[in-house]
């Protein structure tokens, strides 16, 4: 309702929408903090999709079978698509994609830290699909009900499309695990390396996550970081059994009192380091994105110039 009727009326209307768990739409009045929080979270999500293409693109040309090559190409392409859906949804909040891209390239916007780890073996394609996409999906499914309409709608499309991402990763690991001893060792090594970082994708423990409670009050987030992490660990335990691979965590257990899955200590110091830019691939990932963006500038300019010329010609003919 009334964005022009003053902030009080607007706030009351917004509060009522949130209270009855309805959806906020782009033209509605919304508190500036809500808008800011959405822009931050959604653009970060979009950047993660785009930067997240890189570790997997690294293996497209070396995929060990043509079937796997096709699957991986389709998956990385999906990630470009998902970045696009999310950038578009964020644009409805009044920020342009160019501005978001500029923030990313200037180091002012974040993306998921997980993509600052290197994908060094083929088994990493399996571990990324199974664990990284698995964690992402655990996070994203509740976002299909996020209070901001365009975000929720983008997530519905993304979740539908991503349903194959985790499965193909699982299958890669299953093939390796049932392959030669060297293949199985490759799979186990990848699981060992991606386990901790994938658990940390849910963000710091709720106690150290200042934005979490506000985000939940606004119905953007539906569950706390620890709750989602616990659910994810539970799924991993069962699936690892099918894979016949070990999770590198002797402390994983189902707490019979709470009914929740628990895990061993995570290396939050490393998490902060990677977040602060000291991960193995931070510079490399940014450089690649910058090279693509800057290297493509002449193409974008050419297409815009051509469109302008065509429009001018059409105008002249009409006149």
């Amino acid at each position: 309702m009334p964005e022009l009727m003053g902030d009080d009326a607007g706030q009351a209307y917004f509060d009522a929408v949130i209270a009855r768990d309805s959806r906020v739409e782009p033209t509605d009045w919304m508190p500036p903090e809500y808008r800011h929080a959405l822009i931050r979270q959604m653009s970060q999500h979009a950047h993660s999709e785009i930067i997240g293409m890189q570790p997997e693109a690294n293996w497209i040309t070396r995929a060990p079978s043509l079937k796997r090559k096709a699957i991986l190409m389709a998956k990385v392409q999906d990630e470009a698509g998902h970045g696009l859906y999310l950038y578009s949804a964020t644009e409805t909040l009044g920020i342009t994609r160019d501005a978001m891209m500029a923030q990313l390239l200037a180091g002012k916007a974040r993306y998921s830290s997980i993509f600052n780890y290197p994908a060094v073996t083929w088994a990493d394609m399996g571990a990324i699909g199974w664990m990284v996409d698995g964690a992402a999906i655990t996070n994203q499914v509740p976002l299909c009900r996020a209070s901001y309409g365009p975000y929720a709608r983008a997530m519905v499309r993304i979740c539908k499309e991503e349903s194959f991402h985790q499965r193909q990763g699982f299958e890669i690991l299953l093939e390796l695990s049932h392959g030669t001893p060297a293949q199985k060792a490759m799979a186990q090594d990848a699981v060992n390396r991606w386990y901790g970082p994938s658990l940390m994708m849910f963000g710091p423990p709720d106690a150290d996550s200042p934005n979490s409670s506000q985000s939940m009050a606004w119905n953007i987030k539906r569950f706390g970081n620890d709750e989602l992490r616990s659910r994810f660990v539970g799924m991993l335990v069962e699936q690892a059994r099918v894979l016949e691979l070990e999770l590198p965590d002797p402390d994983v257990r189902l707490n019979p009192e709470t009914g929740k899955w628990e895990h061993g200590p995570l290396d939050w110091a490393e998490f902060k380091d990677v977040l602060a830019g000291r991960g193995p691939c931070n510079a490399q990932r940014m450089e690649r994105r910058r090279a693509a963006h800057d290297g493509g500038a002449w193409v974008r300019e050419a297409a815009a110039a051509y469109a302008a010329k065509q429009a001018a010609r059409a105008g002249k003919e009409a006149a």
Partner: peptide
Amino acid sequence: GQWISRGPELEEDVALGNIGLDQLG
């Protein structure tokens, strides 16, 4: 396949991916 994640615009990454997948098929 070498183009993916290096396109001049994200929309073009998707387009080149489709063409590559067609050829691979």
